[in-house]
Nucleic acid binder design. Sequence first.
DNA 1: GCCAACGTTGGC
DNA 2: GCCAACGTTGGC
Length: 151
Amino acid sequence: MKYWLMKSEPEEFSIDALAKVGREPWSGVRNYQARNYMMKDMKVGDGILFYHSNTEIPGVVGLAEVVSETYPDPSQFKKKSDYYDPASKPEQPRWWLVDVGFKRKLARTISLDELKAKSEQLGDFALTQRGNRLSVLPVTAAQWKFILSLE
DNA sequence: GCCAACGTTGGC
DNA sequence: GCCAACGTTGGC
């Protein structure tokens, strides 16, 4: 079992929105590295730290899990979609995703500031590395455990 | 295959 | 809303 951190702008799709719908196809990722994690490395049952970005207090706000195998992101073929990719062909889709299922909200937000302050305990962590913009990134079992111990 | 221009992400 | 970081695109 692996662990991940997935970012979402709460104005677009918040942890509360996920709680309401239960599960959600993680569509719209248009970055190859993030896609590769979803396409190649994620397995049903993997743990997800749900992270709010582009908001007053960016940070980890909840837990989710991978609830589907990888499959082509339907939005890439929809002309009206913001995520439409004219270069992607149905017989060879470019963008893949998984469905994300709600587990629970954290008792409090574990902020980016706080995670930065604990960088010594966290070790190598893509989230807090300079200039990082990846929206899907791996978390080690030790990091997962440590972050949840802060709750 | 280099690299300038451009677009996007996301913290602040 | 600004802007640094950085991925992508396209001309050459």
